[in-house]
Amino acid sequence: MWLLDTESLALCAVGDSSDEKYAILSHTWEWSGETSFQDIKNLAVARGTAGFSKIEKTCGIARTGKSALKYAWIDTCCI
C-alpha cells in the first residue's frame, strides 16, 4: 500500500498497512488539477498541481494533530 510521509510528503510503500495508523483524505475530485500518483513521485512536479495544497494541509493536520500520525492516504495520489 502506498502512503505519504506526513513530514516529507514522499510516497512510502508500506507492506502491512494494518500495522500503521494513518490519516485518510477521500474527496470529490476535480477534473483537472488533482495531484496524481505519477505527479507525487516527483515533488517538484506535484507542487505545481492545483490540488497539492490539499495534500499539504492534510499532512500538516495529520502530523500535528492529537494523534501525530506519520502517514496519510490520499485517494488522488496513493492509488
Rank of each mutant, 00 (worst) to 15 (best):
I74K: 00
I24M: 15
G60Y: 02
A62I: 05
D75H: 11
C78L: 07
G60R: 03
T28E: 15
H27I: 13
I74Q: 00
L43W: 05
A62L: 06
V14R: 06
T64D: 15
K66A: 11
L3N: 02
S36E: 04
I24C: 14
S18W: 15
T64L: 14
A46D: 03
S17F: 10
L4I: 11
R63F: 08
L4N: 00
I74P: 01
I55C: 02
K66Q: 12
C12S: 07
W29L: 10
L69W: 05
G65T: 13
E20Q: 11
W73I: 02
T28V: 15
E56V: 08
A50V: 10
V45K: 07
E34G: 02
H27K: 15
A68Q: 14
K66S: 12
G33H: 08
S53F: 09
C59E: 03
D19T: 14
A62R: 01
N42Y: 08
K70M: 07
A44G: 15
L43K: 04
D16L: 13
L25F: 15
A72M: 05
S36Y: 01
G51Y: 00
S18L: 14
L69C: 06
W29H: 14
A62M: 06
I79Q: 11
I61F: 10
S8R: 06
I55K: 00
F37L: 12
G15F: 09
W2N: 13
W73Q: 02
S18D: 15
L11H: 05
A10R: 10
F37I: 09
R63W: 05
D75N: 09
S32Q: 15
I40V: 07
V14H: 04
L11R: 04
G15T: 09
L3Y: 01
I61D: 04
H27P: 09
A72E: 01
T28S: 15
V45S: 09
Y71P: 00
V14C: 06
C78N: 03
C77I: 05
W31V: 09
W73G: 01
R47V: 13
I61T: 11
T76L: 05
T58D: 01
T64S: 14
M1D: 10
G51R: 01
C59I: 05
G33E: 06
T35K: 01
K70S: 08
H27D: 12
E56A: 06
A68F: 07
K70H: 12
K57M: 13
Y71S: 03
M1S: 11
W29C: 10
S17Y: 12
I61V: 13
W29T: 10
L3D: 00
W2C: 12
C78Y: 01
C78D: 03
W31R: 12
H27G: 15
E34R: 01
A46K: 02
K66C: 15
K57Y: 09
W2Y: 13
T49A: 08
A50P: 04
I40L: 10
T28Q: 14
M1F: 12
K21G: 11
A68E: 13
G33P: 04
S36T: 09
T6K: 00
A46N: 05
G15R: 10
L69E: 05
T35D: 03
Y22S: 09
G60E: 07
Y71K: 03
L25Y: 08
A23C: 13
K66L: 14
W73Y: 08
L43I: 07
T49M: 07
L9P: 00
F52Q: 01
